[in-house]
């Protein structure tokens, strides 16, 4: 244990100054959160010492939180398993060595590690893929309509994946405008702050089909221990690939679907979509996964908006009903 502890201290000391400062801040945020998450809390000690004390008492969702916060990005499933296995066989200091050794880009002097904010106890709605310049078109307009309706009366934090598909961030003012959401002056989110959801609810309303992000979302579903739901618009891209151009992300669509596997509830927009998802659930039996329970909401027959939506937007009763029914199924208050 002593050797691992010395190794961890050395690893921390040899980080570039900017990285060291970022890790110090991340560690402080993490330990503050863990004090609330772990009954009794860990006693106040210097950074790594306190983490070493806390680690043995952590369940898998908290291990996921440790990885996400310290690394400033959502962990891949293999990383969570590796950390869990180290904790099972070795010491907390061995786990800390692993955590520090695998810090992203830690040897790159040009690395600008992001600030991290833990966002606890709230509902996050992932709107990736719903922006007007996104290539992903599956259900985009439906998702935008639902989002706009939800934003009028429900409480949630809209988030999206960063450009590299490594972590979530809050959406910016420009993105809020693009989605037709209300803009509160002086509240522009910083793109450089990585947002780590914890002990809350996650709803995937958009489409995450970039493999790097989708893989991390699969890990989130498996290990983060949060209530989750998703809205699905059908899987035409997979069952009728001949009708879709490659640019629409046909082959990447499998990643999006895999990311939806671990949701508790999937709201299918329209009977056709629901039927497709039921077929998909049959396929999942070979993966040993039950998959989400499927709730069907009626798909409005009226055409959806296309292009940029401006506030206050159209109030379409059919879409309002669709959004209300979806929210009820997802327990979004």
């Amino acid at each position: 244990m002593r050797a691992a502890r010395a190794q961890a201290t050395t690893l921390l000391r040899t980080l570039f100054p900017a990285y060291r400062r970022a890790v110090d801040h991340r560690l402080a945020s993490l330990l503050a959160e863990l004090e609330q998450a772990v009954p009794g809390g860990a006693p106040r000690k210097a950074g790594l010492e306190q983490l070493a004390d806390a680690l043995p008492g952590l369940a898998v969702p908290e291990l996921w939180l440790v990885l996400a916060t310290l690394h400033g990005e959502m962990p891949r499933p293999t990383q969570v398993r590796r950390l869990r296995r180290i904790m099972e066989l070795d010491t907390a200091w061995d786990a800390i060595v692993f955590l520090l050794r695998t810090l992203p880009d830690r040897r790159d002097p040009r690395a600008r590690p992001s600030a991290v904010a833990i966002s606890a106890g709230v509902t996050h709605v992932d709107v990736t893929g719903l922006f007007t310049d996104d290539n992903v078109v599956a259900g985009r307009d439906s998702g935008r309509q639902i989002l706009r309706e939800w934003s009028r009366s429900r409480s949630f934090v809209p988030i999206t994946w960063d450009d590299e598909g490594r972590g979530w961030r809050a959406i910016t003012v420009d993105e809020r405008r693009d989605l037709g959401l209300e803009v509160v002056p002086g509240t522009n989110a910083l793109e450089s702050v990585v947002l780590v959801p914890h002990a809350g609810t996650y709803i995937l309303l958009g489409t995450v089909d970039e493999p790097r992000a989708a893989e991390r979302l699969i890990g989130f579903g498996q290990y983060a221990g949060q209530a989750s739901g998703t809205v699905g618009y059908g899987i035409d891209q997979l069952v009728a690939p001949e009708d879709h151009e490659e640019r629409e992300g046909t082959s990447r669509f499998t990643w999006y679907l895999a990311a939806q596997r671990s949701a508790d509830v999937l709201v299918a927009v329209g009977d056709g979509a629901a039927s497709q998802y039921r077929g998909w659930l049959r396929m999942l039996s070979a993966v040993g996964v039950v998959g989400p329970s499927i709730v069907t909401v009626a798909r409005p027959e009226e055409p959806t908006d296309t292009g940029v939506i401006t506030l206050p937007g159209s109030r379409n009763s059919a879409w309002k009903r669709c959004a209300d029914d979806s929210a009820a199924a997802l327990n979004l208050q």
């Binding site: 899987i235 997979l238 069952v239 039927s275 497709q276 998802y277 039921r278 077929g279 998909w280 659930l281 049959r282 396929m283 999942l284 039996s285 070979a286």
Partner: peptide, 9 residues
């Protein structure tokens, strides 16, 4: 069963 599911979908 996987192929049944695919064809159903």
């Amino acid at each position: 069963e996987e192929f049944h599911g695919f064809f159903e979908a």
